[in-house]
């Protein structure tokens, strides 16, 4: 464990906590893409298949449980909670995310480290996480009004993956057998790049102390 990875995990945790708090406190999920949340739940399911069979550390197991629990509770709020579900603007959340799932699954079947069920599912989760934010970014562009909690949510998510890239550089430089993780790095780089334009507008709006507006 290195500081980049730990900080990245904390940013990731913060992003889901911010989102859960917003939904729980305001009893509203306006501006949140349900499709992105569904993709993230799928990412965690496919990546943490070994949660009960493999043990790496208490931290690792606890964080996996926290991420799975938060993903499912966000889905429960947005789909089943009698008040919150009314605030989900379905007609703004139009990204056809099933194509993302299909594309990532095909790619995982073609490009992976080992052709085993667990490894292909893990690879699928890495690809899917890279694009999972797309429905949310599209929805932000469309709804245009970004409340600062949603902005923070996306900002923390982008920071988490950016820190993970520093972690990969660090591990590449310090660990011997870490050189075959190029697949993760490419996917992680694409994922972070997707946030680039959002970061630009987020920092600009923060600096000018104005409402965050994404260009149409």
């Amino acid at each position: 464990m290195n500081i980049f990875r730990f900080a990245g995990d904390m940013m990731h945790l913060l992003s889901v906590v911010v989102l859960l708090l917003k939904i729980h406190k305001m009893k509203s999920c306006a501006g949140i893409s349900l499709k992105t949340q569904e993709l993230y739940a799928l990412v965690f399911i496919c990546r943490y298949l070994d949660i009960f069979t493999g043990f790496i550390s208490l931290y690792n197991t606890i964080m996996k449980i926290v991420f799975l629990a938060s993903a499912f509770s966000i889905l429960w709020y947005m789909r089943s909670h009698k008040v919150v579900r009314q605030t989900y603007d379905k007609d703004q959340d139009t990204f056809r995310h099933y194509f993302l799932i299909l594309a990532c699954m095909v790619l995982a079947l073609l490009v992976h480290h080992k052709f085993t069920f667990r490894e292909v599912m893990w690879t699928f989760s890495i690809y899917l996480e890279a694009v999972a934010i797309l429905p949310q970014l599209v929805m932000l562009q469309r709804t245009r009004n970004i409340d600062n909690l949603t902005g923070n949510y996306v900002f923390f998510l982008g920071t988490y993956r950016g820190l993970y890239m520093l972690n990969w550089v660090y591990r590449y430089l310090t660990e011997v057998h870490y050189h075959h993780r190029w697949l993760t790095w490419i996917s992680g780089f694409i994922q972070t790049a997707l946030y680039a334009d959002f970061f630009y507008y987020y920092v600009k709006s923060w600096r000018n102390n104005e409402k965050l507006q994404l260009p149409a």
Binding site: D50, I56, N60, K114, Y164, H180
Partner: peptide, 10 residues
């Protein structure tokens, strides 16, 4: 530390 093939990252 996980083996080369284990995934020890979240």
């Amino acid at each position: 530390k996980s083996s080369g093939h284990g995934h020890d990252e979240l």
